[in-house]
Design a protein around this nucleic acid. Sequence first.
RNA 1: GACCCGUUAGCUCAGCUGGUAGAGCAUUUCCCUUUUAAGGAAGUGGCCGUUGGUUCGAAUCCAACACGGGUCACCA
Length: 501
Amino acid sequence: MFDNQYEQLRIEKSKNLASIGKSPYPHNITRGIPTTEFIKKYDYIQTQENKRDESKSEKVIGRIKFLRLMGKAAFLKIEDSHGLLQCYVSQNALGDWFVDVKKLIEVGDIVAVEGFPFVTKTGELSLNAKSLELVTKSIVPLPEKFHGLKDIELRYRRRYLDMIMNQEVKSNFIIRSKMIKEIRNFFDDKNFMEVETPMMHEIAGGANARPFVTHHNSLGVDRFLRIAPELHLKRLVVGGMESVYEINKNFRNEGMDHTHNPEFTSIEFYQAYSNYKDLMRLTEELFDHLRKKLEIEEIIEYNGKKVNLSTPFKEISFKNALIEIGEIDANILKDTKSIEEFLKSKKIDFKPGLSRAKLYEELFDNFVEKKLINPTYITEYPIEISPLSRRDDEDSSIAQRFELFVAGSELANGFNELNDPLDQYDRFLDQINIKNSGDDEAHAMDEDFVRALGYGMPPTAGEGIGIDRLVMLLTNSTSIRDVILFPAMKPVANEDTIEVE
RNA sequence: GACCCGUUAGCUCAGCUGGUAGAGCAUUUCCCUUUUAAGGAAGUGGCCGUUGGUUCGAAUCCAACACGGGUCACCA
Protein backbone atom coordinates (compact mmCIF):
# COMPACT_ATOMS: atom_id res chain seq x y z
CA MET A 1 0.00 0.00 0.00
CA PHE A 2 1.30 3.45 -0.94
CA ASP A 3 4.58 1.95 -2.15
CA ASN A 4 4.54 3.82 -5.43
CA GLN A 5 7.51 6.19 -5.75
CA TYR A 6 5.28 9.27 -5.94
CA GLU A 7 3.31 8.23 -2.91
CA GLN A 8 6.51 7.61 -0.98
CA LEU A 9 7.72 11.11 -1.80
CA ARG A 10 4.45 12.58 -0.62
CA ILE A 11 4.54 10.58 2.60
CA GLU A 12 8.02 12.03 3.18
CA LYS A 13 6.60 15.53 2.74
CA SER A 14 3.78 14.73 5.11
CA LYS A 15 6.29 13.62 7.75
CA ASN A 16 8.39 16.73 7.18
CA LEU A 17 5.32 18.90 7.75
CA ALA A 18 4.62 17.11 11.01
CA SER A 19 8.24 17.58 12.07
CA ILE A 20 8.00 21.37 11.70
CA GLY A 21 4.80 21.45 13.73
CA LYS A 22 2.33 21.48 10.85
CA SER A 23 -0.02 18.56 11.30
CA PRO A 24 -0.87 16.98 7.92
CA TYR A 25 -4.36 16.17 9.28
CA PRO A 26 -5.47 18.95 11.65
CA HIS A 27 -9.06 18.96 12.83
CA ASN A 28 -9.65 22.43 14.20
CA ILE A 29 -10.66 23.87 10.87
CA THR A 30 -13.58 26.24 10.52
CA ARG A 31 -15.32 26.86 7.24
CA GLY A 32 -14.77 30.00 5.22
CA ILE A 33 -16.98 31.12 2.37
CA PRO A 34 -17.60 29.10 -0.81
CA THR A 35 -15.43 29.93 -3.79
CA THR A 36 -18.44 30.94 -5.83
CA GLU A 37 -19.61 33.31 -3.12
CA PHE A 38 -16.19 34.96 -3.03
CA ILE A 39 -16.38 35.55 -6.76
CA LYS A 40 -19.91 36.91 -6.53
CA LYS A 41 -19.23 39.07 -3.49
CA TYR A 42 -16.12 40.77 -4.86
CA ASP A 43 -17.13 41.10 -8.46
CA TYR A 44 -17.21 44.87 -7.92
CA ILE A 45 -13.40 44.93 -7.54
CA GLN A 46 -13.25 44.61 -11.33
CA THR A 47 -14.75 48.06 -11.65
CA GLN A 48 -12.48 49.72 -9.10
CA GLU A 49 -9.47 51.67 -10.15
CA ASN A 50 -6.79 49.95 -8.06
CA LYS A 51 -8.37 46.49 -8.57
CA ARG A 52 -7.99 45.43 -4.95
CA ASP A 53 -9.57 45.93 -1.54
CA GLU A 54 -7.12 45.28 1.26
CA SER A 55 -9.67 46.24 3.89
CA LYS A 56 -11.54 42.99 3.21
CA SER A 57 -10.53 39.55 4.43
CA GLU A 58 -12.02 36.20 3.52
CA LYS A 59 -11.17 32.59 4.17
CA VAL A 60 -11.66 29.96 1.48
CA ILE A 61 -10.96 26.24 1.77
CA GLY A 62 -10.39 23.89 -1.12
CA ARG A 63 -8.28 21.29 -2.82
CA ILE A 64 -5.33 22.54 -4.86
CA LYS A 65 -6.02 21.69 -8.50
CA PHE A 66 -3.37 23.87 -10.17
CA LEU A 67 -0.14 25.17 -8.74
CA ARG A 68 2.20 27.58 -10.52
CA LEU A 69 5.36 28.32 -8.60
CA MET A 70 7.42 31.36 -9.52
CA GLY A 71 10.37 31.69 -7.21
CA LYS A 72 9.11 33.89 -4.41
CA ALA A 73 5.42 33.81 -5.35
CA ALA A 74 2.88 31.28 -6.56
CA PHE A 75 -0.60 31.00 -7.99
CA LEU A 76 -2.80 28.15 -6.92
CA LYS A 77 -6.32 27.28 -7.94
CA ILE A 78 -8.31 25.70 -5.20
CA GLU A 79 -11.58 23.84 -5.67
CA ASP A 80 -14.45 23.32 -3.29
CA SER A 81 -17.82 21.74 -3.97
CA HIS A 82 -18.94 24.95 -5.67
CA GLY A 83 -16.09 25.78 -8.00
CA LEU A 84 -12.57 27.04 -8.50
CA LEU A 85 -10.87 30.10 -7.05
CA GLN A 86 -7.42 31.40 -7.85
CA CYS A 87 -5.21 32.42 -4.94
CA TYR A 88 -1.94 34.31 -4.93
CA VAL A 89 0.64 33.57 -2.27
CA SER A 90 4.00 35.26 -1.88
CA GLN A 91 7.04 35.20 0.34
CA ASN A 92 6.29 38.80 1.34
CA ALA A 93 3.03 37.71 2.92
CA LEU A 94 3.94 34.28 4.28
CA GLY A 95 7.57 34.85 5.29
CA ASP A 96 9.67 31.76 6.02
CA TRP A 97 6.61 29.49 5.86
CA PHE A 98 6.51 30.19 2.12
CA VAL A 99 9.77 28.27 1.67
CA ASP A 100 8.21 25.21 3.30
CA VAL A 101 4.99 25.65 1.36
CA LYS A 102 6.96 25.57 -1.87
CA LYS A 103 8.58 22.30 -0.89
CA LEU A 104 5.83 20.52 1.02
CA ILE A 105 2.44 21.68 -0.28
CA GLU A 106 1.37 20.35 -3.65
CA VAL A 107 -1.50 19.67 -6.02
CA GLY A 108 -4.13 17.52 -4.34
CA ASP A 109 -3.65 18.93 -0.85
CA ILE A 110 -6.55 20.69 0.83
CA VAL A 111 -5.66 24.15 2.13
CA ALA A 112 -7.30 27.08 3.86
CA VAL A 113 -6.34 30.45 2.43
CA GLU A 114 -7.16 33.79 3.99
CA GLY A 115 -6.63 37.16 2.40
CA PHE A 116 -8.11 40.02 0.42
CA PRO A 117 -9.70 40.15 -3.01
CA PHE A 118 -7.83 41.55 -5.98
CA VAL A 119 -7.77 41.31 -9.75
CA THR A 120 -4.66 40.03 -11.49
CA LYS A 121 -2.97 41.56 -14.51
CA THR A 122 -4.82 39.11 -16.72
CA GLY A 123 -8.12 40.18 -15.20
CA GLU A 124 -8.99 37.25 -12.95
CA LEU A 125 -10.60 37.98 -9.61
CA SER A 126 -8.39 36.21 -7.07
CA LEU A 127 -7.61 35.98 -3.39
CA ASN A 128 -4.34 37.54 -2.26
CA ALA A 129 -3.28 35.35 0.65
CA LYS A 130 -2.10 36.73 3.95
CA SER A 131 -2.02 33.21 5.32
CA LEU A 132 -2.16 29.65 4.04
CA GLU A 133 -2.71 26.62 6.24
CA LEU A 134 -2.66 22.97 5.36
CA VAL A 135 -6.00 21.31 6.02
CA THR A 136 -5.41 17.81 4.68
CA LYS A 137 -2.34 16.29 3.09
CA SER A 138 -2.94 14.17 0.00
CA ILE A 139 -0.43 11.36 -0.37
CA VAL A 140 -1.82 9.89 -3.58
CA PRO A 141 -1.10 12.09 -6.60
CA LEU A 142 -3.98 13.22 -8.80
CA PRO A 143 -4.18 12.33 -12.49
CA GLU A 144 -2.97 14.75 -15.08
CA LYS A 145 -4.47 18.23 -14.89
CA PHE A 146 -5.29 18.69 -18.53
CA HIS A 147 -6.67 15.36 -19.73
CA GLY A 148 -7.87 14.37 -16.26
CA LEU A 149 -9.17 10.90 -15.53
CA LYS A 150 -10.68 9.35 -18.64
CA ASP A 151 -10.37 5.62 -18.03
CA ILE A 152 -14.01 4.57 -17.64
CA GLU A 153 -13.13 1.59 -15.50
CA LEU A 154 -11.13 3.66 -13.02
CA ARG A 155 -13.87 6.26 -12.92
CA TYR A 156 -16.40 3.67 -11.75
CA ARG A 157 -14.05 1.83 -9.42
CA ARG A 158 -12.75 5.02 -7.80
CA ARG A 159 -15.77 7.26 -7.93
CA TYR A 160 -14.21 9.61 -5.37
CA LEU A 161 -11.37 10.27 -7.80
CA ASP A 162 -13.81 10.65 -10.67
CA MET A 163 -15.61 13.29 -8.62
CA ILE A 164 -12.38 15.16 -7.84
CA MET A 165 -11.27 15.16 -11.46
CA ASN A 166 -14.58 15.46 -13.30
CA GLN A 167 -16.79 18.05 -11.67
CA GLU A 168 -19.63 17.31 -14.08
CA VAL A 169 -20.18 13.74 -12.85
CA LYS A 170 -21.82 15.17 -9.77
CA SER A 171 -24.61 16.75 -11.77
CA ASN A 172 -26.37 13.42 -12.42
CA PHE A 173 -26.28 12.62 -8.75
CA ILE A 174 -27.59 16.03 -7.80
CA ILE A 175 -30.51 15.44 -10.15
CA ARG A 176 -30.97 11.97 -8.68
CA SER A 177 -31.03 13.33 -5.16
CA LYS A 178 -33.51 16.06 -6.05
CA MET A 179 -35.67 13.60 -7.93
CA ILE A 180 -35.94 11.22 -4.99
CA LYS A 181 -36.69 14.14 -2.68
CA GLU A 182 -39.47 15.29 -5.02
CA ILE A 183 -40.91 11.80 -5.30
CA ARG A 184 -41.09 11.71 -1.50
CA ASN A 185 -42.71 15.15 -1.44
CA PHE A 186 -45.23 14.04 -4.05
CA PHE A 187 -46.34 10.96 -2.16
CA ASP A 188 -46.18 12.59 1.26
CA ASP A 189 -48.45 15.37 0.00
CA LYS A 190 -50.92 12.72 -1.05
CA ASN A 191 -50.91 11.27 2.46
CA PHE A 192 -48.89 8.20 1.63
CA MET A 193 -46.75 6.91 4.47
CA GLU A 194 -43.16 5.95 3.88
CA VAL A 195 -42.08 2.66 5.41
CA GLU A 196 -39.08 0.37 5.48
CA THR A 197 -39.61 -3.35 5.06
CA PRO A 198 -36.98 -6.06 5.42
CA MET A 199 -34.06 -6.49 3.07
CA MET A 200 -33.44 -10.01 4.36
CA HIS A 201 -36.26 -12.34 3.45
CA GLU A 202 -37.11 -15.83 4.48
CA ILE A 203 -38.74 -16.27 1.08
CA ALA A 204 -37.73 -13.99 -1.78
CA GLY A 205 -40.96 -13.01 -3.48
CA GLY A 206 -42.71 -10.26 -5.35
CA ALA A 207 -40.87 -10.59 -8.64
CA ASN A 208 -39.47 -13.10 -11.08
CA ALA A 209 -35.78 -13.11 -10.26
CA ARG A 210 -33.03 -15.13 -8.68
CA PRO A 211 -32.08 -13.87 -5.23
CA PHE A 212 -28.78 -13.49 -3.42
CA VAL A 213 -28.37 -15.79 -0.46
CA THR A 214 -26.77 -14.82 2.83
CA HIS A 215 -26.51 -16.54 6.18
CA HIS A 216 -27.68 -15.58 9.64
CA ASN A 217 -25.20 -17.12 12.05
CA SER A 218 -27.07 -16.96 15.34
CA LEU A 219 -30.27 -18.34 13.84
CA GLY A 220 -28.34 -20.79 11.72
CA VAL A 221 -30.53 -20.10 8.67
CA ASP A 222 -30.01 -18.79 5.18
CA ARG A 223 -31.70 -15.57 4.21
CA PHE A 224 -32.44 -14.09 0.80
CA LEU A 225 -31.77 -10.49 -0.05
CA ARG A 226 -35.07 -9.15 -1.23
CA ILE A 227 -35.92 -9.05 -4.91
CA ALA A 228 -38.94 -6.78 -4.26
CA PRO A 229 -40.74 -5.28 -1.26
CA GLU A 230 -44.16 -6.06 -2.74
CA LEU A 231 -45.39 -8.84 -0.46
CA HIS A 232 -44.43 -7.00 2.71
CA LEU A 233 -46.02 -3.76 1.56
CA LYS A 234 -49.26 -5.60 0.85
CA ARG A 235 -49.12 -7.13 4.33
CA LEU A 236 -49.06 -3.54 5.58
CA VAL A 237 -52.18 -2.75 3.55
CA VAL A 238 -53.84 -5.75 5.21
CA GLY A 239 -52.73 -4.29 8.54
CA GLY A 240 -54.45 -1.00 7.80
CA MET A 241 -51.89 1.23 6.11
CA GLU A 242 -54.11 2.29 3.27
CA SER A 243 -51.48 4.31 1.37
CA VAL A 244 -47.86 3.26 1.73
CA TYR A 245 -44.67 3.54 -0.23
CA GLU A 246 -41.08 2.47 0.10
CA ILE A 247 -38.06 3.82 -1.75
CA ASN A 248 -35.22 1.39 -1.35
CA LYS A 249 -32.91 -1.20 -2.81
CA ASN A 250 -33.70 -4.52 -4.42
CA PHE A 251 -31.15 -7.19 -5.18
CA ARG A 252 -31.28 -9.54 -8.13
CA ASN A 253 -28.72 -12.20 -8.75
CA GLU A 254 -28.55 -11.80 -12.49
CA GLY A 255 -26.27 -10.54 -15.21
CA MET A 256 -24.96 -7.00 -15.32
CA ASP A 257 -25.06 -4.67 -18.26
CA HIS A 258 -25.67 -1.04 -19.03
CA THR A 259 -29.26 -1.24 -17.80
CA HIS A 260 -28.88 -3.74 -14.95
CA ASN A 261 -27.03 -3.37 -11.65
CA PRO A 262 -27.37 -6.25 -9.16
CA GLU A 263 -28.63 -3.79 -6.56
CA PHE A 264 -31.01 -1.15 -7.77
CA THR A 265 -33.45 1.31 -6.31
CA SER A 266 -37.17 1.30 -6.84
CA ILE A 267 -40.22 2.91 -5.38
CA GLU A 268 -43.25 0.74 -4.75
CA PHE A 269 -46.49 2.29 -3.63
CA TYR A 270 -49.85 0.85 -2.73
CA GLN A 271 -53.16 2.60 -2.43
CA ALA A 272 -56.28 0.92 -1.05
CA TYR A 273 -59.66 1.62 -2.66
CA SER A 274 -58.13 2.71 -5.93
CA ASN A 275 -57.50 0.86 -9.17
CA TYR A 276 -54.76 0.65 -11.72
CA LYS A 277 -56.38 3.34 -13.85
CA ASP A 278 -56.08 5.71 -10.89
CA LEU A 279 -52.40 4.83 -10.65
CA MET A 280 -51.91 5.56 -14.34
CA ARG A 281 -53.27 9.04 -13.73
CA LEU A 282 -51.17 9.35 -10.55
CA THR A 283 -48.04 8.35 -12.48
CA GLU A 284 -48.72 11.04 -15.06
CA GLU A 285 -49.17 13.52 -12.24
CA LEU A 286 -45.85 12.40 -10.76
CA PHE A 287 -44.09 12.92 -14.10
CA ASP A 288 -45.57 16.41 -14.38
CA HIS A 289 -44.50 17.15 -10.83
CA LEU A 290 -40.92 15.98 -11.46
CA ARG A 291 -40.65 17.85 -14.73
CA LYS A 292 -41.81 21.04 -13.07
CA LYS A 293 -39.64 20.73 -9.94
CA LEU A 294 -36.53 19.60 -11.81
CA GLU A 295 -37.15 22.07 -14.64
CA ILE A 296 -37.13 19.46 -17.35
CA GLU A 297 -38.47 20.24 -20.80
CA GLU A 298 -41.54 18.48 -22.15
CA ILE A 299 -39.52 17.06 -25.02
CA ILE A 300 -36.22 15.59 -23.90
CA GLU A 301 -33.50 13.85 -25.78
CA TYR A 302 -32.53 10.36 -24.76
CA ASN A 303 -29.83 8.41 -26.53
CA GLY A 304 -30.28 10.50 -29.65
CA LYS A 305 -34.06 10.13 -29.69
CA LYS A 306 -36.65 12.75 -28.94
CA VAL A 307 -38.97 11.71 -26.12
CA ASN A 308 -42.16 13.63 -25.54
CA LEU A 309 -43.08 13.49 -21.87
CA SER A 310 -46.34 15.36 -22.17
CA THR A 311 -49.31 13.84 -20.37
CA PRO A 312 -51.60 11.95 -20.64
CA PHE A 313 -49.50 9.09 -21.94
CA LYS A 314 -50.53 6.89 -24.82
CA GLU A 315 -52.35 3.71 -23.90
CA ILE A 316 -52.73 0.46 -25.81
CA SER A 317 -53.58 -3.11 -24.88
CA PHE A 318 -50.89 -5.77 -24.86
CA LYS A 319 -52.49 -7.65 -27.74
CA ASN A 320 -53.17 -4.56 -29.85
CA ALA A 321 -49.58 -3.47 -29.27
CA LEU A 322 -48.43 -6.73 -30.84
CA ILE A 323 -50.64 -6.12 -33.87
CA GLU A 324 -50.37 -2.36 -34.31
CA ILE A 325 -46.90 -1.56 -33.02
CA GLY A 326 -45.28 -4.95 -33.51
CA GLU A 327 -46.97 -5.23 -36.92
CA ILE A 328 -47.74 -8.88 -36.36
CA ASP A 329 -50.67 -10.37 -38.27
CA ALA A 330 -53.58 -10.97 -35.89
CA ASN A 331 -54.02 -14.45 -37.34
CA ILE A 332 -50.56 -15.44 -36.15
CA LEU A 333 -51.58 -14.68 -32.57
CA LYS A 334 -54.41 -17.20 -32.61
CA ASP A 335 -52.42 -20.31 -31.74
CA THR A 336 -49.05 -21.25 -30.34
CA LYS A 337 -48.02 -23.16 -33.44
CA SER A 338 -48.26 -20.20 -35.79
CA ILE A 339 -46.47 -17.98 -33.27
CA GLU A 340 -43.66 -20.50 -33.02
CA GLU A 341 -43.40 -20.63 -36.83
CA PHE A 342 -43.37 -16.85 -36.95
CA LEU A 343 -40.61 -16.62 -34.36
CA LYS A 344 -38.57 -19.23 -36.22
CA SER A 345 -39.03 -17.35 -39.49
CA LYS A 346 -37.58 -14.28 -37.73
CA LYS A 347 -34.68 -16.34 -36.42
CA ILE A 348 -35.60 -15.72 -32.80
CA ASP A 349 -34.58 -18.35 -30.28
CA PHE A 350 -37.12 -19.42 -27.70
CA LYS A 351 -37.51 -22.26 -25.27
CA PRO A 352 -39.66 -25.07 -26.62
CA GLY A 353 -43.07 -25.73 -25.09
CA LEU A 354 -43.86 -22.15 -24.08
CA SER A 355 -47.47 -21.24 -23.38
CA ARG A 356 -49.25 -18.72 -25.56
CA ALA A 357 -48.81 -16.01 -22.93
CA LYS A 358 -45.08 -16.63 -22.79
CA LEU A 359 -44.91 -16.58 -26.58
CA TYR A 360 -46.78 -13.28 -26.58
CA GLU A 361 -44.14 -11.98 -24.18
CA GLU A 362 -41.45 -13.18 -26.60
CA LEU A 363 -43.17 -11.28 -29.42
CA PHE A 364 -43.57 -8.19 -27.26
CA ASP A 365 -39.92 -8.11 -26.24
CA ASN A 366 -38.75 -8.55 -29.81
CA PHE A 367 -41.16 -6.46 -31.82
CA VAL A 368 -42.79 -3.91 -29.56
CA GLU A 369 -40.69 -2.83 -26.58
CA LYS A 370 -37.98 -0.98 -28.48
CA LYS A 371 -40.53 0.94 -30.51
CA LEU A 372 -42.16 2.46 -27.42
CA ILE A 373 -40.28 5.76 -27.34
CA ASN A 374 -42.81 8.25 -26.02
CA PRO A 375 -44.29 7.16 -22.70
CA THR A 376 -46.81 4.43 -23.41
CA TYR A 377 -48.99 2.36 -21.14
CA ILE A 378 -49.43 -1.25 -22.13
CA THR A 379 -52.55 -2.73 -20.55
CA GLU A 380 -54.47 -6.03 -20.47
CA TYR A 381 -51.57 -8.34 -19.76
CA PRO A 382 -52.03 -12.11 -19.93
CA ILE A 383 -52.79 -13.36 -16.42
CA GLU A 384 -50.15 -16.06 -16.61
CA ILE A 385 -47.27 -13.59 -16.69
CA SER A 386 -48.90 -11.53 -13.90
CA PRO A 387 -49.05 -13.89 -10.93
CA LEU A 388 -49.78 -11.23 -8.32
CA SER A 389 -52.40 -9.17 -10.10
CA ARG A 390 -56.16 -9.30 -10.09
CA ARG A 391 -58.07 -10.91 -12.92
CA ASP A 392 -60.26 -8.86 -15.16
CA ASP A 393 -63.93 -9.37 -14.27
CA GLU A 394 -64.98 -9.96 -17.86
CA ASP A 395 -61.99 -11.86 -19.22
CA SER A 396 -60.36 -14.02 -16.58
CA SER A 397 -57.31 -14.64 -18.80
CA ILE A 398 -56.37 -10.97 -18.59
CA ALA A 399 -54.82 -9.09 -15.66
CA GLN A 400 -55.92 -5.62 -14.57
CA ARG A 401 -52.43 -4.40 -15.07
CA PHE A 402 -50.33 -1.84 -16.93
CA GLU A 403 -46.69 -1.28 -17.65
CA LEU A 404 -45.20 2.05 -18.63
CA PHE A 405 -42.57 2.06 -21.34
CA VAL A 406 -40.37 5.02 -22.22
CA ALA A 407 -37.46 5.20 -24.64
CA GLY A 408 -37.72 1.51 -25.41
CA SER A 409 -37.59 0.15 -21.90
CA GLU A 410 -39.87 -0.59 -18.99
CA LEU A 411 -40.11 2.09 -16.36
CA ALA A 412 -43.13 1.18 -14.26
CA ASN A 413 -45.37 -1.78 -13.55
CA GLY A 414 -48.70 -1.45 -11.81
CA PHE A 415 -51.84 -3.44 -11.27
CA ASN A 416 -54.88 -4.12 -9.21
CA GLU A 417 -53.59 -6.36 -6.48
CA LEU A 418 -54.95 -9.83 -6.25
CA ASN A 419 -56.69 -10.00 -2.87
CA ASP A 420 -58.50 -13.33 -3.24
CA PRO A 421 -56.42 -15.57 -0.96
CA LEU A 422 -57.56 -18.80 -2.61
CA ASP A 423 -56.75 -17.55 -6.11
CA GLN A 424 -53.39 -16.29 -4.82
CA TYR A 425 -52.70 -19.70 -3.31
CA ASP A 426 -53.49 -21.43 -6.60
CA ARG A 427 -51.29 -18.95 -8.52
CA PHE A 428 -48.38 -19.73 -6.24
CA LEU A 429 -49.00 -23.43 -6.90
CA ASP A 430 -48.90 -22.68 -10.64
CA GLN A 431 -45.63 -20.81 -10.13
CA ILE A 432 -44.20 -23.79 -8.28
CA ASN A 433 -45.09 -26.00 -11.23
CA ILE A 434 -43.39 -23.54 -13.55
CA LYS A 435 -40.38 -23.53 -11.23
CA ASN A 436 -40.26 -27.32 -11.14
CA SER A 437 -40.34 -27.40 -14.92
CA GLY A 438 -37.07 -25.50 -15.00
CA ASP A 439 -37.77 -21.76 -14.65
CA ASP A 440 -35.85 -20.97 -11.48
CA GLU A 441 -37.07 -17.39 -11.54
CA ALA A 442 -40.70 -18.32 -10.92
CA HIS A 443 -42.24 -17.35 -7.60
CA ALA A 444 -41.94 -19.43 -4.47
CA MET A 445 -44.90 -20.20 -2.22
CA ASP A 446 -45.28 -17.65 0.56
CA GLU A 447 -47.90 -19.08 2.90
CA ASP A 448 -47.68 -16.24 5.38
CA PHE A 449 -48.49 -13.80 2.61
CA VAL A 450 -51.49 -15.90 1.56
CA ARG A 451 -52.56 -16.06 5.21
CA ALA A 452 -52.35 -12.25 5.40
CA LEU A 453 -54.67 -12.03 2.40
CA GLY A 454 -56.89 -14.47 4.25
CA TYR A 455 -57.59 -11.79 6.86
CA GLY A 456 -58.80 -9.54 4.07
CA MET A 457 -56.87 -6.98 2.03
CA PRO A 458 -59.04 -4.13 0.79
CA PRO A 459 -59.18 -3.67 -2.98
CA THR A 460 -55.80 -2.11 -3.70
CA ALA A 461 -53.73 -0.96 -6.63
CA GLY A 462 -49.94 -0.98 -6.48
CA GLU A 463 -47.10 0.14 -8.66
CA GLY A 464 -43.33 -0.03 -8.86
CA ILE A 465 -41.09 2.45 -10.65
CA GLY A 466 -37.42 1.86 -11.32
CA ILE A 467 -35.61 4.86 -9.89
CA ASP A 468 -32.30 4.22 -11.64
CA ARG A 469 -33.99 3.91 -15.03
CA LEU A 470 -35.94 7.08 -14.37
CA VAL A 471 -32.75 8.97 -13.51
CA MET A 472 -31.15 7.59 -16.66
CA LEU A 473 -34.04 8.92 -18.71
CA LEU A 474 -34.01 12.36 -17.11
CA THR A 475 -30.23 12.76 -17.30
CA ASN A 476 -29.81 11.26 -20.78
CA SER A 477 -27.52 8.54 -19.42
CA THR A 478 -27.29 5.36 -21.45
CA SER A 479 -25.47 3.44 -18.71
CA ILE A 480 -26.95 2.69 -15.31
CA ARG A 481 -23.41 3.08 -13.99
CA ASP A 482 -23.61 6.79 -14.64
CA VAL A 483 -26.51 7.18 -12.22
CA ILE A 484 -25.29 4.84 -9.46
CA LEU A 485 -22.51 6.29 -7.32
CA PHE A 486 -20.75 2.99 -6.74
CA PRO A 487 -21.84 0.61 -9.48
CA ALA A 488 -21.11 -3.09 -9.10
CA MET A 489 -17.79 -4.08 -10.66
CA LYS A 490 -16.10 -7.41 -10.97
CA PRO A 491 -13.27 -7.76 -8.47
CA VAL A 492 -9.88 -7.12 -9.95
CA ALA A 493 -6.76 -9.01 -8.88
CA ASN A 494 -5.31 -7.01 -6.01
CA GLU A 495 -1.59 -6.31 -6.31
CA ASP A 496 -1.54 -4.98 -2.78
CA THR A 497 -2.46 -8.26 -1.17
CA ILE A 498 -1.10 -8.13 2.34
CA GLU A 499 1.65 -10.64 2.79
CA VAL A 500 2.06 -12.30 6.15
CA GLU A 501 5.70 -12.79 7.02
C1' G B 1 -23.68 -16.45 -23.08
C1' A B 2 -21.91 -14.77 -28.45
C1' C B 3 -19.17 -11.36 -31.37
C1' C B 4 -16.09 -6.85 -31.91
C1' C B 5 -12.63 -3.32 -29.59
C1' G B 6 -9.26 -2.02 -25.66
C1' U B 7 -5.33 -3.00 -21.62
C1' U B 8 2.29 0.29 -22.65
C1' A B 9 5.30 5.33 -16.71
C1' G B 10 1.05 8.18 -11.42
C1' C B 11 -2.41 10.32 -15.66
C1' U B 12 -3.39 11.06 -21.18
C1' C B 13 -1.46 8.58 -25.22
C1' A B 14 2.41 7.13 -29.50
C1' G B 15 5.09 2.75 -30.67
C1' C B 16 4.39 0.57 -38.93
C1' U B 17 5.78 -5.27 -41.92
C1' G B 18 9.04 -8.76 -34.95
C1' G B 19 15.39 -6.24 -33.58
C1' U B 20 14.87 -5.35 -26.86
C1' A B 21 10.61 1.46 -24.70
C1' G B 22 8.81 6.91 -26.29
C1' A B 23 6.08 11.92 -25.76
C1' G B 24 3.22 15.49 -22.91
C1' C B 25 1.63 16.34 -18.02
C1' A B 26 3.10 14.92 -13.07
C1' U B 27 7.51 14.10 -10.05
C1' U B 28 13.05 15.37 -8.40
C1' U B 29 17.13 19.37 -8.47
C1' C B 30 18.09 24.44 -10.03
C1' C B 31 16.34 29.67 -11.98
C1' C B 32 11.99 32.82 -11.73
C1' U B 33 7.14 38.00 -7.11
C1' U B 34 0.76 38.81 -11.54
C1' U B 35 0.67 33.17 -13.78
C1' U B 36 -3.75 30.79 -16.92
C1' A B 37 -2.38 23.43 -19.48
C1' A B 38 2.87 29.58 -16.62
C1' G B 39 8.08 29.51 -18.54
C1' G B 40 13.57 27.98 -18.82
C1' A B 41 17.67 24.05 -17.70
C1' A B 42 18.93 19.09 -16.16
C1' G B 43 17.35 14.28 -14.18
C1' U B 44 14.32 10.00 -12.09
C1' G B 45 10.48 6.90 -13.37
C1' G B 46 8.26 0.52 -17.12
C1' C B 47 6.99 -7.45 -15.27
C1' C B 48 4.23 -3.25 -22.40
C1' G B 49 -2.92 -6.92 -18.16
C1' U B 50 -1.57 -12.53 -16.88
C1' U B 51 0.06 -17.33 -18.60
C1' G B 52 1.68 -20.23 -22.45
C1' G B 53 3.28 -20.83 -27.72
C1' U B 54 5.95 -19.49 -32.49
C1' U B 55 10.94 -17.33 -33.27
C1' C B 56 17.96 -16.59 -32.90
C1' G B 57 14.89 -12.56 -30.92
C1' A B 58 7.97 -10.71 -28.94
C1' A B 59 4.98 -4.53 -26.42
C1' U B 60 4.46 -6.15 -31.65
C1' C B 61 2.51 -12.63 -34.33
C1' C B 62 -0.71 -16.91 -32.23
C1' A B 63 -3.70 -19.20 -28.10
C1' A B 64 -6.01 -19.23 -23.42
C1' C B 65 -7.41 -16.42 -19.29
C1' A B 66 -8.55 -11.71 -16.44
C1' C B 67 -10.68 -6.88 -16.35
C1' G B 68 -13.16 -2.95 -19.01
C1' G B 69 -16.08 -0.83 -23.17
C1' G B 70 -19.61 -1.68 -27.21
C1' U B 71 -23.36 -4.61 -30.00
C1' C B 72 -26.66 -8.63 -29.54
C1' A B 73 -29.01 -12.45 -26.60
C1' C B 74 -30.99 -13.63 -21.70
C1' C B 75 -33.50 -11.17 -17.73
C1' A B 76 -37.49 -7.29 -15.12
